[in-house]
């Protein structure tokens, strides 16, 4: 228990470092996809430190400043409720998947307040798009989770991780406990939704630098932008960790970190080769095929458990 509290205190720092590293390596991989050399893998750390070391910043009001802080706090509290593989359950015995689904939105909503006070229409449009995108992907995603709950008879993420536990060793591979193999359709749906959650192409309407000048970030600079970059890193960690915990069985540290990374890289590679949807198209897309697939996944689950 005490060890767990220590882990919980360390978790945000680890998550930030991991998330920034993922983005850094991701930039390198995208560069290679585009036949460029690409920045060094530690570039994202440098960028973040540089942003935090800016000497001046401008603020449009109290909530403009509080927005990124609220976002950061929201992300940190969320990641405490997502187990770090099977190595450390953190606080996930004190809150389940429904809590996590709602904790995840604290960060964007907190940020939305700040963005709104920024009095720039680009930011507001970005937020409107972001919330619409959330409306789009949450519905198939919750159905994918629903089939997991049907299969495991629990909403607690820690117990879902436990239910997939096998003997983990370097020699033996026990991936066949994974829910990905038990519920393949739901896993696919969840991965499609992950693309929207991470805001990667074709679902990067929120940022859309060429249309709305990086949307929510338009008025933010310096330390605020630094906090937002950290928040983005945390966000990547949270979403991928959630996916790995639920569908890839969590696993020990040596599996968990590469697994989260590869989930991120998968969506990044899709990002690398696709253009952007219009926001309405994104909604239509998510409420089309993935939704039908999710329903099929649930029916499949019902058949399997019988």
């Amino acid at each position: 228990m005490n060890i767990n509290i220590l882990y919980a205190a360390l978790a945000p720092i680890v998550a930030i470092l991991l998330g920034l590293l993922y983005i850094g390596i991701g930039r390198k991989i995208i560069a290679r996809l585009q036949r460029r050399y690409g920045p060094p893998f530690y570039q994202q750390y440098i960028d973040t430190i540089k942003l935090l070391a800016k000497k001046t910043v401008s603020s449009h009001g109290v909530f403009f400043s509080l927005g990124p802080i609220m976002g950061l706090a929201g992300s940190m509290v969320t990641l405490l409720f997502i187990p770090f593989g099977s190595a450390a359950p953190l606080l996930s015995f004190h809150g389940d998947i429904i809590l996590v689904m709602y904790l995840v939105v604290i960060a964007p909503l907190g940020m939305a307040l700040g963005v709104g006070e920024g009095s720039n229409p680009n930011g507001s449009i970005g937020m409107a798009r972001g919330l619409t995108l959330m409306l789009a992907y949450e519905v198939p995603f919750v159905l994918a989770l629903f089939s997991v709950v049907l299969y495991t008879h629990t909403t607690s993420i820690a117990q879902i991780v436990q239910s997939q536990a096998g003997e983990w060793s370097l020699l033996k591979f026990h991936g066949f406990n994974w829910l990905t193999f038990a519920l393949p359709i739901s896993a696919i749906v969840a991965d499609i939704c992950l693309q929207g959650m991470l805001g990667e192409k074709p679902f990067d309407q929120v940022i859309a630098p060429h249309e709305i000048a990086s949307g929510p970030m338009v008025e933010y600079g310096g330390k605020y932008l630094g906090m937002m970059v950290i928040n983005h890193a945390l966000h990547i960690y949270i979403e991928t960790a959630l996916f790995v915990d639920i569908f890839l069985g969590g696993g020990p540290v040596w599996f968990f970190i590469p697994a989260t990374f590869s989930v991120f890289i998968l969506s990044l590679i899709i990002n690398g080769v696709l253009p952007r949807f219009r926001i309405g198209q994104a909604l239509k897309f998510y409420w089309g095929v993935p939704l039908i697939l999710a329903v099929i996944g649930i029916i499949y689950t019902m058949v399997v458990i019988k």
């Binding site: 560069a31 460029r36 690409g38 920045p39 540089k50 000048a213 933010y220 932008l225």
Partner: peptide, 22 residues
Amino acid sequence: MTSRYDMERFGIIPMATPRQAD
């Protein structure tokens, strides 16, 4: 910016707004 000379390898990337730029 693109593959031929790739300025991103020096950490230089284009930004959308002046608030973010150096």
